[in-house]
Amino acid sequence: MLQIADLTIRYGGITAVHGLSVSVDEGELVALVGPNGAGKSSTLAAVSGLVTPAAGRIVFDGESLVGLPPEETVRRGVALVPEGRNIFGSLTVAENLALGATIRRDRRAVAHDVERELDRFPILRERYGQQAGYLSGGEQQQLAIARALLSRPRLLLLDEPSLGLAPLLVDAVFDTIAELRRGGMTTLLVEQNATRAVALADRSYVLRTGRAVRSGTAEELGGAAALASEYLGETTEELPA
C-alpha cells in the first residue's frame, strides 16, 4: 500500500535519511525503531508532506506523494499524529475533533464518527467543551489520535505516541494501537519504546543514522527484548524539541 524507496532527506548540509526503503501492506502495522537522529520522524514527515525529500520515491496506493503538501496528502488518505501531539491548546476538544474532519463534507457521517471516537475515548466526551490545553498528556494523545482518525485515513502515521507518558498511559496508548490494528487500520508507527513497538508490530525496521540496518518480524529480529537491549541507553534519551 505504501512503498518508500531510496528516500533521502537533507536539512541544509545535514543528511537525516540515506536511501531508506520501507514498505507497508494493507492492514499491516509496521514499526520504525532506532535511536535518536536515526531519521524515523523525518521519514514520517516526508510521507505526510511536511518535508520534501532530496531524492527517492514515496508511492501510496499507486500514486506518488513526493512534493504534495500536507493538506493534500491528508486528502489522499494519510493522517499523521505528530510527535508531541500538537493539539490546538487554545481550542476546545470539540473544535479539535471538528478540525480532524476538515477534509470531509459528509456532516452526518462525521457526527457519527465523532460519537465513535468519544466512545473509544470516554474522557474526551467528559471534556468535550473544554479547552484542549487543559487536558493531561495522555488525554492529549487520545485527542490527537481521535482527531487523526476523523479524517478517515487509509494510512495512519504515529510519531512517538508514547513519548513522555506515564507507564499506565503508555499501556493505554499501545492498547489503542492494538485495537486499531485489529480493526484493520494500516499503520506506520515510529517509537522510541522499541520493545513494545516491535512486539506489537507485524514487521519492524531498525534505523540507525538514516539507514535501515535490519528489518523483519519480532522473531526474525531475534526477539523484541534482545533488540531493545541493543539500544539500551540510546532509546531513553530525551529527544530534541
Binding site: 536539512y11 541544509g12 548540509g13 545535514i14 511536511l50 518535508v51 520534501t52
Partner: peptide, 11 residues
C-alpha cells in the same frame, strides 16, 4: 539559519 531555516521553511 541553514538547518533550522530550511526545516522551518519546509514546514
Amino acid at each position: 539559519d541553514v538547518t533550522s531555516g530550511d526545516a522551518a521553511g519546509a514546514a
